[in-house]
Design a protein around this nucleic acid. Structure first.
Length: 379
RNA sequence: GGGCAGUUGGCUGAGCAGCAAAGGCACUAGACUGUAAAUCUAGCGGGUUCUACCCUUCGCAGGUGCAAGUCCUGCACUGCCCA
């Protein structure tokens, strides 16, 4: 992986660049759609390409469980396995430490809702119910069949090497937003130790990005940025909970971005509402993955220049017009709201395909415009 | 022609004297940020001065009760059985 910066903004931390990989070039800043199980749900890989998606992120944990990385390795790697010819990254399983652990126990996402801000209930000694976090790694219970499995930094890297994506991530713990300072500090020590082990464990020429944690605590975030930066990764992942209040993510980014080697790409893990994207990029993020365009599509939500539309609402049965009149994607050129609304209400899976395609195209187009703004010096 | 069973809100389906009437589905409005086509929350007869009150509802028409979807009588329709 080779990262080049073409232009740095004078008025923000935004930058324009590209990443070269064995599977092609990614223009940055760039949205990375999420293909957890080696698929963008509902779409074929050729269709994903038609949405102008440049790079995907798949998931170590889920692919390890099913079909197992050996199957993918035998297929010649994930690119061949899923017939995706462009760049790919794999998440390390670090997010599953949270989502299958405290996330499940407390019904939490990475982002705390209103009123939850001061409810820090996860303290240093606590363990989630169905996941056991140790100094060396994490014991999971398979959500598929209940099997016990262990993933630590070495295991994660070994799996990711078998999967064969262009970019791997270090095995981390995504800390829960209800964790207090002591918990996060302890967790960060683990994440840092694991990061170093991941780096040593790597045997292939796949790129490896080190993940920065530290929740909302300035000293921990800064310490994490400095430490991860010092280890010499190919790039950075920024993870964890970070939206305790308005502007939280940007504040965290302001702390850590200046401490990172500017010649290396920065990937924001799991953030990307439309309203967040420009701020992320202005803060200095090069790539970011987010399930929003695809996940919301399957709830019937289309993103358009008019805002979020819930296509299930029966009023759309009367709208003989494309999802977005300014959009030139295949869906908007060929289908109208009334039809898509009908398919949704009838429970037809094609509706989910059409909205997924449009949403990805829309998000990608949205980022193209931001790249254009950087080029023109507007942001 | 005779015998038995049944008829509940958009559908399904409980209730068998104190009910605006369980559950499910559908529907309506939300939530969802390193992804379950999962899930969760709220509403779902109508109205108002909306932590409460009023009106109209359980095939139709009468009746007995303080009180009836619930009991009685007749009628209508549906299903099964006998002729």
């Amino acid at each position: 992986m080779n990262f080049k910066i073409l232009k740095k903004s004078n008025i923000s931390n935004a930058r324009l660049g590209f990443m070269e990989t064995e599977h092609g070039v990614v223009q940055t800043p760039c949205l990375i759609p999420v293909a957890t199980q080696a698929v963008i749900k509902t779409l074929t890989s050729e269709e994903v390409e038609q949405t102008n998606s440049q790079m995907l992120i798949s998931n170590t944990f889920w692919l390890h469980l099913r079909p197992g990385e050996k199957i993918i390795d035998k297929a010649g790697g994930i690119h061949k396995f899923m017939n995706w010819k462009k760049p790919l990254m794999t998440d390390s399983s670090g997010f599953q430490v949270f989502s299958l652990g405290f996330g499940r126990d407390f019904g939490l996402t990475k982002f705390l809702g209103k009123g939850m801000k001061d409810k820090k209930v996860i303290t240093q000694s606590k363990q989630p119910k169905s996941v056991k976090i140790t100094q060396d790694g994490v014991y999971f219970k398979s959500p598929i069949n209940g099997d016990q499995l262990f993933i630590g930094p070495k295991e994660s890297i070994a799996i990711q090497e078998n999967i064969g994506a262009d970019i791997m991530f270090t095995f981390d713990e995504c800390t829960p937003p209800l964790a207090d300072y002591e918990y996060v500090k302890k967790s960060l020590e683990r994440t840092h130790r694991w990061a170093k082990i991941c780096l040593k464990a790597r045997k292939t020429k796949q790129a490896l990005f080190g993940i920065i944690q530290g929740s909302e605590f300035k000293d921990l975030r800064e310490a994490s940025a400095k430490y991860i930066n010092s280890l010499g990764f190919d790039g950075f992942g920024i993870g964890g909970d970070l939206w305790r209040d308005k502007g939280g993510t940007n504040r965290v980014l302001q702390w850590i971005i200046p401490l990172l080697d500017e010649k290396k790409p920065r990937h924001m893990l799991g953030v990307g509402y439309l309203k967040n994207i420009e701020d992320l990029i202005k803060s200095g993020v090069d790539t970011f993955d987010c399930t929003v365009p695809t996940h919301y599509a399957r709830r019937g939500i289309a993103f358009t220049s008019e805002g979020r539309l819930n296509l299930r609402q029966q009023k759309f049965l009367k709208k003989r017009e494309p999802l977005d009149k300014n959009c030139v994607c295949q869906v908007c050129l060929n289908y109208k709201k009334d039809y898509i609304c009908h398919l949704l209400r009838a429970g037809e899976i094609t509706a989910l395909r059409l909205i997924t395609f449009h949403n990805l195209h829309y998000f990608n187009e949205y980022v193209v415009k931001i790249r254009e703004k950087i080029r023109k010096g507007e942001i």
